[in-house]
Design a protein around this nucleic acid. Structure first.
Lengths: 125, 125
DNA sequence: CTAGTTGCAAAGCATTTGCCTGTGG
DNA sequence: CCACAGGCAAATGCTTTGCAACTAG
């Protein structure tokens, strides 16, 4: 990100303000509040760069468009929770043991993804 | 599936022959070998019906197009392994304990997805 | 100044849909 | 016969890209 443009600052701010992983559309919506001319292409291009720079990481949940979150949050191994009521995605600290026992012989595990679905605190009331 | 058409039979066969979850494109490729006029729209429409009828279930892996597998295979709780070398997807029997311990207080888990990545036996050699 | 950026429109993919023709029962 | 199916092309929704105009440094 060579230049500090209004657009980039607004996009970075939108991601940092978010409480969890956010989608490009959501970033556009928030960033457009500060920079009227904000464009979806700019959001996508900026996100690609930030991923390449390691500032943010893509969060892929099964069957949904990509979301992004700060790399800082991703430095500690974690997984995600998706509220089936409000569609928000939350980070979950920690992991589980025993994943390797699921592997058939001859298979080697390099990484894994876990997604939990259900209702978050807000929606569970 | 009211009618037994050549197309439907070929699509069903393609899914049953598969060694794991398969993508629509792959189904088209295999089914087209038997029915020359086979069309992607037909594949998609037939898959939708089969899902509605409960004959097959969609398998969603993070960041990839849907795959489908026989419901029979899905009746026993299982997860998936994706080979990062050949891109094949395999079913994994069993599950792990302790997922609920990842939940923050106030969150309720209804279901979960686990995807393991690495190299399969064929590619690991 | 001027290379890096942006906005806009067009292009890509995967998937869906409309519509008219074909066919299984 | 004729309602259900299929083929084809156009429409979607998300994401990427080409290109000319713009601007940060």
């Amino acid at each position: 990100m060579d230049r500090r443009t209004r657009q980039r600052l607004a996009i970075v701010e939108a991601i940092e303000k978010a409480s969890g992983p956010v989608m490009p559309q959501e970033i556009l919506r928030v960033a457009a509040a500060n920079v009227a001319s904000m464009n979806l292409s700019t959001v996508y291009r900026t996100l690609s760069r930030m991923v390449a720079e390691g500032v943010i990481v893509p969060v892929q949940l099964p069957g949904e468009p990509v979301r992004y979150e700060r790399r800082e949050a991703a430095d500690t191994h974690h997984h995600h929770f998706r509220c089936t009521s409000c569609d928000s995605v939350y980070d979950l600290a920690g992991c589980v043991a025993g994943l390797k026992s699921l592997l058939p012989r001859g298979f080697k595990m390099i990484r894994h993804d876990i997604t939990l679905y259900g209702t978050c605190r807000k929606c569970g009331a």
